[in-house]
Measured scan of single mutants.
Amino acid sequence: MTYKAILNGKTLKGETTTEAVDAATAEKVFKQYANDNGVDGEWTYDDATKTFTVTE
């Protein structure tokens, strides 16, 4: 399944996708990606669109 992350960081804005077996696995991948890029904020998840959003 393909999951998407939308990054609304102070220094990084954009989107990325990952293939994962479930939302929990995708969330770990996206949170690591955000952390590696200095983005730390509030996370939300929309199951209907399989989209995570982080906003700083």
Rank of each mutant, 00 (worst) to 15 (best):
E42I: 14
A34T: 05
D40C: 13
G14H: 12
A34S: 04
A23T: 07
E15Y: 13
T25H: 12
G41P: 02
V29D: 04
A23H: 08
K13A: 06
G14Q: 13
W43Q: 01
Y33T: 03
G41R: 01
K31G: 03
V21R: 12
D46T: 04
E56R: 02
Y33W: 15
K28G: 08
E19P: 04
W43T: 00
I6W: 04
L12I: 13
D36I: 10
A5K: 02
N35V: 13
E42K: 10
G14P: 03
D22W: 01
Y33F: 12
K50C: 04
G14S: 12
A24Y: 10
D46K: 03
A34F: 11
K31P: 01
A26L: 00
T25S: 13
W43N: 01
T49Y: 04
I6D: 02
T18P: 01
K50N: 08
V54K: 01
T51P: 00
Y45M: 00
A24W: 10
G38K: 07
G14Y: 14
F30L: 06
Y33L: 09
T53N: 05
T25A: 14
F52A: 02
T18L: 11
I6Y: 07
A48H: 09
D47Y: 08
T55D: 07
A23G: 04
N35C: 14
A24M: 12
Q32K: 13
T55L: 07
I6G: 03
T17K: 08
T55H: 08
D22T: 04
T2P: 06
A23R: 12
T17M: 10
G9M: 10
A20Q: 05
E27A: 11
E27P: 00
T51K: 02
L12T: 11
I6C: 07
A24S: 11
T2V: 14
V54I: 13
L12W: 15
E19N: 13
K50V: 03
T44R: 08
G38M: 06
A20N: 03
D36H: 07
N37H: 15
A48C: 08
A5R: 00
E15F: 14
G14C: 15
N35M: 15
G41W: 06
Y3L: 03
D22K: 00
K10I: 14
I6R: 05
A20I: 02
N8H: 09
T53G: 02
V54E: 02
Y45S: 01
V54L: 13
T17E: 10
G14E: 10
Y33K: 03
A20M: 02
D46W: 02
A23D: 05
D22M: 03
K4N: 05
F30T: 00
G41L: 04
T11W: 13
T17Y: 14
K4S: 06
T11H: 13
V21Y: 11
D22E: 04
G9I: 07
T18I: 14
E19L: 14
E42F: 12
A5T: 04
D40S: 12
Y3I: 04
Y3A: 05
L12Q: 07
A48R: 11
V21K: 13
N35R: 15
N35S: 14
A34E: 00
E42T: 12
T16R: 10
T51Y: 02
A48T: 11
Y33A: 03
G9C: 14
V29R: 09
A20V: 04
F30I: 03
T25M: 11
T53R: 06
Y33D: 02
T53V: 09
E27G: 07
E15M: 13
E27M: 14
K13R: 11
E42Q: 12
L7R: 00
A26K: 00
Y33R: 04
E15W: 14
K4L: 07
A48W: 07
N35G: 09
K31M: 09
Y33H: 04
T16Q: 08
V54W: 11
W43S: 01
W43V: 03
I6K: 05
D22H: 03
T16H: 13
I6L: 06
K10D: 07
A34Y: 06
V21E: 11
I6H: 05
V21M: 12
T55I: 09
A26M: 01
E19T: 14
L7P: 00
E56F: 08
A26H: 01
N8E: 07
D40R: 13
E56C: 06
G9T: 15
T25E: 13
N37S: 08
T49P: 00
T55K: 06
T49K: 07
T49N: 08
T44G: 06
K28D: 06
K50Q: 10
D47C: 07
Q32V: 08
G38V: 03
T16A: 12
D47F: 09
K13P: 04
T17F: 14
G38I: 04
N35F: 15
T49S: 10
D40A: 11
F52S: 00
G41M: 04
E42N: 10
T16G: 04
Y3M: 04
K28H: 08
T17R: 09
F52H: 00
E56H: 06
E27C: 14
Y45D: 01
Y3V: 05
A48K: 11
K31S: 04
A23I: 10
E56D: 08
T11P: 03
K50A: 06
T16N: 04
V21T: 11
V39L: 13
T53S: 06
K10A: 12
T49C: 04
D40H: 14
T51Q: 04
A20E: 03
T16D: 02
D47R: 07
A20D: 02
L12Y: 15
K4H: 12
E42W: 12
G9F: 14
N8M: 11
K10P: 10
T25D: 09
L7A: 02
T25V: 09
A24L: 11
Y45I: 00
K31W: 07
F52M: 02
T25P: 01
E42C: 12
T18H: 06
K10R: 13
T55C: 06
D40V: 14
T51R: 03
K31H: 08
W43H: 00
D46P: 00
E27D: 04
G38T: 03
W43M: 03
A20F: 02
A48Y: 10
